[in-house]
Amino acid sequence: MIQLIINGQPERLEQALTVHALLEVRQLAGKRLAVERNGEIVPKGRHAETLLADGDRLEIVVAVGGG
């Protein structure tokens, strides 16, 4: 079990997942989004190889309407 903060919310995962696997579980895979882990961008090309660790802070963002 690992604990993460995703978009400011505490979340538990039964096991350590990659960024890609997390996006799949949350039905976000393939969507236009960007991921930051502990203040650093995780490029799309590295989602499949980036394993999340206990205590990670993730930001997962999209484009929304704005001026």
Partner: peptide
């Protein structure tokens, strides 16, 4: 056209339309 960058829902609302579509 300008857009804002915001946290996405993380699975609470799958299928939510995306502005960039």
């Amino acid at each position: 056209v300008t857009v804002a960058i915001r946290r996405t829902n993380i699975g609470q609302n799958p299928g939510e339309p995306n502005l960039l579509d």
